[in-house]
């Protein structure tokens, strides 16, 4: 199944949740936020939400920065 992750085309097995994806990518679940098809997905929904064909996922985190 194909979907977009942070602007890049990706493939993943069916029945993968957002939580699974982050675990697979070794991401600390407590340090990121997720936008699923343009909507913020609350942390509590990550284990319930399956990634579907064509989904657009953005996974973001805080980094050092002052301006621009």
């Amino acid at each position: 199944m194909n979907f977009i992750l942070n602007g890049k085309a990706q493939q993943i097995n069916d029945s993968t949740t957002i939580w699974d994806l982050l675990s697979e990518k070794s991401i600390n679940h407590n340090t990121v936020v997720v936008e699923h098809n343009g909507k913020i997905l609350e942390h509590t929904q990550w284990q319930k939400t399956l990634i579907n064909q064509g989904d657009n996922l953005e996974v973001l985190k805080f980094v050092g920065g002052g301006s621009q």
């Binding site: 985190k61 980094v63 050092g64 920065g65 002052g66 301006s67």
Partner: peptide, 30 residues
């Protein structure tokens, strides 16, 4: 202190800036 929000780079080390920020600080994301 101010911090920025960026896409996670899945190919690089997952550095967490917040672990360097003491708890008493007021975070002002930009």
């Amino acid at each position: 202190i101010t911090v920025a929000l960026r896409r996670v780079d899945f190919d690089a080390d997952d550095e967490n800036i917040l672990k360097h920020v003491p708890k008493h600080c007021i975070l002002m994301p930009n």
